[in-house]
Deep mutational scan, measured.
Amino acid sequence: VDNKFNKEQQNAFYEILHLPNLNEEQRNAFIQSLKDDPSQSANLLAEAKKLNDAQA
């Protein structure tokens, strides 16, 4: 993981990586967004979790 991520951002990265119901395309999009703007990690994680739950 890129060293410019802080602890919260790293946690978001790993959580998104391991959400079971996202397809690869969705997962990659969230990860790319996280890399583009790490400050949005909490929002991105919340969105990813919502999508993950919706696809459960």
Rank of each mutant, 00 (worst) to 15 (best):
V1C: 10
V1T: 08
V1D: 04
V1A: 06
V1F: 05
V1G: 12
V1N: 08
V1W: 01
D2P: 02
D2V: 02
D2H: 03
D2A: 03
N3V: 08
N3C: 11
K4Q: 08
K4R: 08
K4E: 14
F5D: 10
F5W: 07
F5V: 10
N6I: 03
N6Y: 02
N6L: 04
N6A: 03
N6H: 03
N6V: 03
N6T: 06
N6W: 03
K7N: 11
K7M: 05
K7I: 08
K7F: 03
K7W: 05
K7V: 07
K7H: 09
K7A: 05
K7P: 15
K7Q: 10
E8V: 01
E8S: 04
E8N: 03
E8H: 04
E8I: 02
Q9I: 06
Q9S: 04
Q9P: 01
Q9R: 01
Q9E: 06
Q9W: 13
Q9V: 09
Q9K: 01
Q10C: 12
Q10V: 04
Q10N: 04
Q10P: 01
Q10R: 06
N11T: 09
N11R: 15
N11C: 14
N11Y: 15
N11L: 14
N11E: 13
N11G: 09
A12K: 02
A12Q: 03
A12T: 07
A12R: 04
A12C: 07
F13C: 04
F13Y: 11
F13H: 07
F13N: 02
Y14F: 11
Y14S: 06
Y14C: 10
Y14H: 11
Y14A: 06
Y14Q: 08
Y14V: 04
E15M: 15
E15Q: 15
E15G: 12
E15L: 14
E15N: 12
E15I: 12
I16M: 09
I16F: 04
I16W: 01
L17D: 03
L17S: 12
L17Q: 10
L17H: 06
H18R: 15
H18Y: 07
H18P: 00
L19R: 00
L19S: 02
L19E: 00
L19F: 04
L19M: 08
L19P: 00
L19H: 02
L19Y: 05
L19N: 01
L19Q: 03
P20S: 07
P20F: 14
N21V: 03
N21T: 05
N21M: 07
N21L: 07
L22C: 00
L22I: 11
L22A: 00
L22Q: 00
L22W: 00
L22N: 00
L22H: 00
N23M: 14
E24M: 09
E24F: 08
E25S: 10
E25I: 13
E25G: 10
E25Y: 14
Q26T: 06
Q26D: 04
Q26P: 00
Q26R: 03
Q26I: 07
Q26W: 07
Q26K: 05
R27W: 01
R27H: 03
N28C: 14
N28D: 05
N28L: 14
N28M: 13
N28V: 06
N28P: 00
N28Q: 14
A29T: 12
A29N: 07
F30Y: 11
F30N: 00
F30R: 00
F30M: 06
F30K: 01
I31W: 06
I31A: 14
I31N: 02
I31V: 04
I31S: 03
I31H: 05
I31K: 03
Q32P: 00
Q32R: 14
Q32E: 06
Q32L: 15
Q32H: 14
Q32K: 06
Q32T: 07
S33A: 08
S33Q: 09
S33H: 13
S33G: 08
S33F: 13
L34N: 01
L34S: 01
L34H: 01
L34C: 09
K35M: 09
K35R: 14
D36V: 12
D36M: 13
D37R: 05
D37M: 08
D37K: 09
D37F: 05
D37Y: 07
D37H: 11
D37C: 07
P38S: 06
P38K: 05
P38R: 03
S39D: 09
S39N: 12
S39M: 12
S39P: 08
S39I: 11
S39F: 02
Q40C: 08
Q40T: 11
S41I: 12
S41H: 14
S41C: 12
S41P: 02
S41D: 03
S41E: 01
A42V: 11
A42Y: 15
A42H: 12
A42I: 08
A42Q: 09
A42F: 15
A42E: 11
N43Y: 15
N43M: 14
N43I: 14
N43F: 15
N43Q: 05
N43S: 12
L44W: 07
L44V: 05
L45M: 06
L45I: 03
L45G: 01
A46K: 13
A46S: 10
E47K: 14
E47R: 14
E47G: 12
E47P: 00
A48F: 02
A48W: 01
A48C: 05
A48S: 08
A48Q: 00
A48P: 00
A48N: 00
A48G: 02
A48E: 00
K49E: 03
K49I: 05
K49P: 00
K49T: 08
K49N: 09
K50C: 13
K50A: 08
K50H: 07
L51Y: 09
L51V: 11
L51E: 06
L51H: 08
L51Q: 09
N52M: 02
N52H: 02
N52L: 01
N52E: 03
N52P: 01
D53C: 13
D53T: 13
D53V: 07
D53A: 13
D53Y: 09
A54F: 13
A54D: 11
A54T: 13
Q55F: 10
Q55G: 11
Q55C: 12
Q55R: 04
A56H: 10
A56R: 05
A56P: 10
